[in-house]
Design a protein around this nucleic acid. Structure first.
Lengths: 339, 339
DNA sequence: AACGGTGCCGGAAACGTTCTCGAACATCAA
DNA sequence: TTGATGTTCGAGAACGTTTCCGGCACCGTT
């Protein structure tokens, strides 16, 4: 009894045929006798033979593995994206290898090194909030390693990307706020370099402009700390001489932090201040009052990223970078006034 | 200019030394001249050489990769566990490959095949709710493939396991319910074969018994559909002649479904019926009323599973299966009466 | 001068596949 | 009989490493 995995060689020996023939039989090649083929397949079944993907990969120089880097696995948005990636990938014979950058550029780099060492066929990346310089990604492109960016993207790279329509989502949300009677609307965003934050900021700006409202620098706050920065930001906004009557936050966790500060200070929502988030985390519909937010299709984004990637590696000839923009949807709940 | 990854051979050629020497230099072997070593490392740096893990794996018969199978990535509990696994693994030089069974036994099997084909060094598994028969896992053990089970485990396998103290968590929760004056307590659980559901059921039973309360079969409902079954289950409980005055649910999502049914029917929480969940999802503290629940340390569980696994593969000599039981904590919130 | 030890290095096999080339044989038509 | 064609198969190289084994040069000791 062998206590190890059977190899193609074991099959060949036992059947008294050559390794090449076994290989052909397993891959259903045309030039092999149907009888031999049947014998090989039967024995493979019997010995629980599993082809050694490591050896295959070395030989054919493809691993059928996709490297995925996200800032934080345990965020609902990202785990949903991953779920979409994983399902699409599995359906097309790909495995996925996952890393989290934890919003650190250094960790992102070392993640990527690890994945490249593992010779993944390419990378699906959502950038850390620290990542403003993308030299490490340019190196990969120089080595012809395909990359698809999603959600947290950069314009500096000629690769396929999939995002939600951040500008439009923000524009719609802020437009809605204005139409419910808010005129002093603040924005709490992420660090300056973060693509999604800037896109959403631009949507906010354009909505104000459309309605002829002034753009006050004091009303725009950038948080470098994505986890807790929103608390301070909200406090600062409340202490302003002209207190805002609405706050639009870059994402739901920030909006929830803001909500807690507002509650602390006895500010009524939405009567005194309206609040809008982004993402539609599962929490948001259950919180009191339920959070008005911009929903983004996370699972679909994952599928799209995987689809673009596999399309690129399986038909490299007619490939050009493509940017896919997914629609968002404003979900009106209790933190905004009625129209 | 090469448009492909540099190999050890490229380094050797360029430095006019042998492949063996380069290999030794890179692995910091003792029997290589410090000067040569320096030259090799310098050139490696310059050419952005990354060792080919695929070739290494084939040669040394270890991939330094852990296969992970969970029912559903996009559940907060599991994504937290994965986060813990990933971090611990990365710190110890391991990559992780992730699959989701989507609560299907067939998918679980094909996931495992894929991972085994990739020659992962072993598997970290949380069983699907459909998995009652574990022959497919016994096959792996016969092939000496290490397995560590977490959360959704089975007693049928002599492998390391990490769970939370489901019995104790349930016992504490139900004991608390009784001490707040509830006497007709129902349990909504998962399918019959699900380890965590049965453990929690036993904790529930023992708490009732401790207080001399009767065990009514009508008060115990098993849901095969983990996603939506709790809705029907709650309706059935409410229609019972002797309506319960408390419901203990196997997890938070089920408790939230139950809560919605209660609200629909105009039942007051906790005055008419108390409600307790399990897991402490992020939602649970924000929902109104905030859900009393049993918190489990998901991230720690992931770390522990990875730790047990790596311990097993790196010191196989003194290995014996170990079961690690993590403590839970009852978080009292608004869905239960005060003591 | 011969010897053993040490430091450094190269050759070559092996890991489990895929794939190209060509061999061996049968069949068939001329 | 010859040559052409087709079917089935095997030999062997290659993918990029690691590692065993042995070789050479140099040193100090006897």
């Amino acid at each position: 009894m062998k206590n190890t995995q059977a190899t193609i060689r074991d099959l060949a020996l036992k059947l008294n045929i050559s390794i090449s023939t076994v290989s052909r039989a397993l891959r259903n090649a045309p030039d092999v006798n149907p009888e031999t083929k049947k014998a090989v397949l039967a024995l493979a079944e019997q010995l629980h033979y599993e082809p050694n993907r490591v050896a295959q990969s070395l030989r054919i120089k493809k691993t059928k593995t996709i490297g995925v880097v996200v800032p934080q696995i345990a965020m609902h948005f990202f785990s949903s994206v991953i779920s979409g990636i994983q399902e699409y990938a599995a359906q097309h014979g790909y495995s996925i290898m996952i890393c989290q950058s934890l919003e650190s550029l250094d960790t992102e780099k070392s993640n990527i090194h690890m994945l490249v060492s593992n010779r993944v066929d390419g990378l699906l990346i959502s950038l850390s909030s620290e990542t403003t310089n993308v030299e490490h990604l340019e190196h990969l492109l120089a080595k012809k390693i395909p990359i698809v960016l999603f959600d947290r993207i950069t314009d500096a790279l000629p690769v396929s990307k999939v995002v939600v329509d951040d500008h439009d989502g923000a524009f719609t949300a802020v437009d809605y706020l204005i139409r419910t009677g808010c005129h002093r609307i603040a924005y709490i965003g992420g660090p300056e370099g973060l693509s999604i934050s800037n896109q959403r900021l631009q949507g906010y700006r354009d909505a104000l402009q459309k309605h002829g409202l002034p753009l006050l620098p004091d009303y725009i706050v950038h948080c470098t700390d994505l986890q807790h920065g929103a608390t301070d930001a909200t406090r600062r906004l409340l202490d302003l001489p002209g207190r805002p009557d609405a706050i639009f936050c870059m994402n739901d966790p920030m909006a929830i932090l803001a909500m807690q500060v507002l509650r602390e200070r006895g500010v009524r929502i939405p009567d005194d201040i309206s609040l809008v988030g982004f993402t539609d985390e599962p929490v948001s519909r259950f919180i009191e009052p339920a959070l008005t937010t911009v929903a983004q299709p996370a699972y679909t984004m994952g599928q799209a990223a995987a689809r673009l990637f596999i399309g690129q590696v399986e038909q490299p000839d007619n490939f050009t970078p493509r940017q896919e923009v997914l629609p968002t949807e404003l979900i009106v709940r209790g933190t905004t006034r009625r129209l």
